[in-house]
Design a protein around this nucleic acid. Structure first.
Lengths: 195, 195, 195, 195
DNA sequence: TATGAATGAGGCTTCATTCAT
DNA sequence: CATGAATGAAGCCTCATTCAT
């Protein structure tokens, strides 16, 4: 009798709309109008499905994290998983989504400044870091909670985030592929340090 | 007779005001009122000295770059200069200015999204990178335009930027000092690669 | 065969929903969503049964008036009827309905400002006043259209409405029971004035 | 050097604008646009001088209370003061301001529904009630904190508020002057009750 | 009848910028 | 140079109402 609900679908569309809008103008400048237009919806509908614009951003964080995790899960060996995680964060390889990677960085920037966003982003990063710890430990041949593994893991995370930030903010300062190579260097040095 | 111009001083105060205001709220949310209040001035005066809010941001980029360069210049040996550059970007060591480092990251985020800011930020980064190239080359014992040196230099830059981004956006994901150690690892690995 | 119409029931539920919603937020802030939720219905259904939100308010006025009249009718002697009327308007006694009394005052407030509501509210008040005229006249022992009776009646009405308005808007300014006593005073004074 | 401040004057104009706008449409329907237009100002300026629309309402409460108190103060004998207070609340006599009296009732209605407004309105009513206590006590020839005096005072307040509410919401139900006579009746009855 | 998604007008508020003083 | 009031465009959000199902 009643209409079938399409809330799930619509919410996904709106989140995608934010991602598109953010990618080209940043979060603050991405107006609800922009989001709606990018999703092919009316502005009012955005607020029908999300209480506030901020709520869309939180949903986007969850979506991006899921997408990254999915790419890691799809890989089989630890080496492939490590590559997949890096590629997902740097935006290369199959399944690359430029808007998504740009959004991730812009979310980080917003997290710098908004408490609620920081909390959500931090949790997502910590979950990714945990995954990364295991992959790095496997590469180094040590336990996942080994201190060295965690340090390298954090450095890899920083390198990768910085690489994308610079690639977006100062494109001429980077060269394609340098991030992946940097990760290899970090791992190599850590290996060499081991007794 | 005419009172001495204080334009230079005022502009510096306004730029510093933006840095303060940005540090706690980001560029977009830092209103001209906030800038003026942080500088102890009236809002109208901001526009007397700068045509637009964007112009203040461009001035801030120049100021931040100068400050970093000054810290590098103050160091004597190449090793010290390298440390100084890293510390300046990560916000540690003497002369550390939390607002300045936060501002630098937030400028990077804005550069991601605003063409004019990107141009200015990119130029600044390229100049810093050039300096860094030399320091890295010196550490590796090769020519400054050696490809390996430039790659490592870019990786260092990425690592450092990422470290600060994460320290601000997901503080729990990082550990103090991990960035400096990461830089050492990158250099060590690069050394090891050399024939 | 055709399913039995439940329109009557539904309309009553919606009107009651408005009363509930108004009681806690006022008429303007009571959204159709609130009304529907309070009635346990969907928003669309409100507009299926009522053309506009204003139409629900008009129906509420009629309902409230009926309810007051019913309490008066249920009483037997003129004295009891008078008490019943006052208690109904002040919201005490058996059958008291806090939401209903609050709604009545809020309807009065809306009547102050909306022509259509004023017309409906005025008619209802005039009918109640007519009843009250008779009861007061009976108490005073004079004809229902005696000028003194009508004046006292109007004063009683004003006292009672003001009592409830203040009890809702400035609760600390009133004491329970003071309104009923005030009515007695008005009647006593009027009695004393008679030759 | 700087411009002389006109904040005080502007705030008063805005408050008066709200009073005008409210008088004809109620508080909720009085938009900031309406307020600004009634005051001959631009909408943005309203928010330059008041943080929110609600803040203007709070300022209006204070203004209305002051105005009433001023009329009472201007009278000399207690009898005159009592008359002045009643006339001020019912909106008759010299200094009558229809918009102000309508606003007072509409403020009461809003107080019914908004906590912050209720607090402010309640305080204002309590201060007026205290004044009224004294005047009634003087009329009855008893102490101002005599219980009877306070009861009568509250009844007078209720009668007067109700009278105005009805005069605005159901004009046909009232007759000019009935409120003042009602007050006299309340006082007369209270006198008669005294031993 | 009933549902709940969808629309679009309009409300409150913010803010870069201008300008009279 | 300096102040701070003033403007107006634009943003986020709400909500009565409509409509496909």
């Amino acid at each position: 009798m009643a209409r079938p609900t399409n809330t799930h679908q619509r919410r996904a569309e709106i989140v995608e709309g934010l991602s598109q809008a953010m990618a080209s103008r940043g979060y603050r400048a991405a107006t609800v109008q922009h989001i709606a237009k990018a999703a092919g919806l009316s502005p009012g509908l955005v607020h029908y499905h999300f209480k506030t614009k901020g709520a869309v951003l939180l949903a986007l964080i969850a979506t991006l994290e899921d997408r990254i995790a999915a790419r890691v899960d799809a890989a089989v060996t630890p080496e492939d998983k490590l590559d997949a995680l890096i590629e997902a964060l740097v935006g290369r390889g199959p399944g690359a989504d430029d808007a998504a990677v740009r959004s991730w960085t812009l979310v980080a920037a917003e997290a710098t400044v908004d408490d609620e966003v920081r909390d959500a982003f931090e949790q997502a990063v910590l979950r990714l870091a945990e995954t990364l710890d295991g992959l790095v430990a496997s590469a180094l041949g040590c336990a996942p909670d080994d201190e060295a593994a965690r340090e390298v893991s954090a450095q890899v995370l920083a390198l990768v985030h910085g690489a994308f930030l610079l690639s977006a903010a100062a494109p001429k300062s980077i060269v394609p592929g340098f991030a992946a190579q940097g990760v290899r260097r970090l791992l190599a040095a850590a290996m060499a340090e081991r007794p």
